[in-house]
């Protein structure tokens, strides 16, 4: 194989890959401003270090992709504003947010759960039945 062939193959692969990826990455619904603000809260507080969305992130805390189907917004906001002690700790609390950040974050989590995940995570149906 020659350098020219390798370069052409690389450029074509790259172009096609970027194209099909961007076409596939369309959102099912437009995102609201509050949900966008919530996304920035998620990023600013580095929530991904402990929690996963779509299964990607840290494994210390529960996956939050469909948390908005399992818990009510009021419960989630209260949890974030007045966080409980995190097991197995006896003193350390979950990081606290102010009310506006908490509301925005819950909007973001409500938006995330509308993104179709092809049946992942597998226990979602069971959770929905329980709720």
């Amino acid at each position: 194989m020659k350098l020219r062939t390798f370069l052409i193959l690389s450029i074509l692969s790259f172009g096609l890959f970027v194209g099909v990826t961007l076409i596939s990455a369309r959102l099912p619904f437009p995102m609201t401003e509050q949900a966008l603000a919530g996304k920035l809260v998620w990023q600013r507080h580095n929530c991904v270090s402990c929690h996963t969305l779509f299964g990607n992130g840290g494994y210390v805390g529960d996956d939050l992709t469909h948390v908005a189907t399992k818990e009510t917004p009021a419960y989630l906001i209260n949890y974030l504003v007045q966080p409980p002690v995190m097991r197995p700790n006896k003193l350390a609390h979950h990081p606290a947010l102010n009310e506006m950040d908490a509301v925005n974050l819950v909007h973001y989590l409500e938006f995330v759960q509308t993104i179709p995940t092809l049946g992942w995570p597998p226990q979602r149906e069971k959770a929905e039945k329980d709720s």
């Binding site: 692969s13 179709p116 992942w120």
Partner: peptide
């Protein structure tokens, strides 16, 4: 490039 698809399974991409 196309093996990256295994990271795209559950993030809202087509089947």
């Amino acid at each position: 490039f196309y093996g990256t698809g295994h990271h795209y399974y559950w993030i809202g991409f087509p089947a």
